[in-house]
Simulated assay, not measured.
Amino acid sequence: MEIPIQFPTVPLSSGHNIPVLGLGMSHHGGYSHNALLYALRSCGIRHIDTAKRYGNEELVGKAVSESGVKREELWITTKLWPGDYGYDKATQACLDACKRLGVQYLDLYLMHWPDAHVPGKSSREARAETWKALEDLYYRGICRSIGVSNFLIHHLEQLKEDCSVVPHLNQVEYHPFQRPQELVNYCKRNNIVFGGYCPLAKGQALTHPLILRIAKQYGKTPAQICIRWSIQNGVVTIPKSTKESRIQENCQVFDFHLQHSDMMWISSLHSNKKLIHLTYPLWKG
């Protein structure tokens, strides 16, 4: 087994350092056991991003166990589904996630969506109650860092008013067509690390003429250009793939640097094109 490279990390306000590049799972064909093993053993991936909703936490735990990589070398992120919001349900859901993953602690636990359907409570009240559960899990060391996903500025402002721990990370859709710079700037001002999923715009960025031109200029693939652009913007970037060759390709982004002018050209593609809708309709399950 070749010795994989070590990827750069970004410091969180929790005191822990998150690898700037991860491998994302999903519930739409988002798991391949062999691909995850390959990512861990051969590509240097140490950051795995999953969620209860994806239904593969047990499989991820199995791959981690089989990989031979030490637990302390890994960064495991999973997410709390809105159906488990509320203090007691969130606490139990976290413990259940740890059990499914076969770990004693989570490196990062995220509230998956801001919408919160808890009977008798407003969304704001439900978010605050749920976040207080995550704060206690953080204080207990069961979650070494805690954060949110898909939260907008007003959601983050409310949490700041209602609770005591500012989220360590906010994970949001981020790619050349969707660059929410106002949210990025807000997170930076409040010491919240910005995480980005869907960096290839579900493949739509890979055929754009500008991306193709820049890729040819650097002798890189369009995917590598998009991921490098995201990382150079200070974003913890989470591409998804179940193909070994693609995972290897996506990891080879630390041997070149995009010039400022090319960064600006790619950023100019922003059209507020969201591929993931903020209000997620599948509350059950």
Rank of each mutant, 00 (worst) to 15 (best):
H27V: 10
H27L: 01
V193Y: 03
E161Q: 15
I192M: 03
W229T: 06
T279L: 08
S164W: 13
I45F: 15
M25C: 15
P119R: 00
C98E: 15
K243D: 12
A128M: 01
R124C: 14
Q224K: 00
M264L: 07
C198A: 10
V172N: 11
G68L: 00
Y174N: 01
G147R: 14
R41H: 14
G141I: 01
N185A: 14
T221W: 12
M264P: 03
Q252C: 06
C94W: 07
C187P: 08
L106P: 12
P176M: 08
Q158E: 15
H28E: 15
E173T: 02
C163D: 08
S149H: 05
G195K: 05
K202G: 11
L282V: 00
A63L: 00
L269E: 15
K202Y: 04
H277V: 09
L206A: 11
R179N: 15
V103E: 11
F194V: 00
L275Y: 03
P8C: 11
G44L: 05
L74Y: 09
L152Y: 10
R246K: 07
G203C: 14
G102V: 00
Q92V: 10
P114E: 04
H47A: 07
L37W: 02
D255F: 08
H168K: 13
H117L: 13
E173C: 04
K132C: 11
P82L: 02
H16Y: 14
V64W: 00
E244D: 04
P239Y: 06
H33M: 00
W131E: 08
P199M: 09
D84V: 01
N233M: 08
S14Q: 13
W131C: 10
P222F: 04
F7Y: 12
K132H: 03
S32T: 00
I214D: 13
F194K: 09
F177G: 01
I238C: 05
P19K: 05
I276H: 01
M264Q: 15
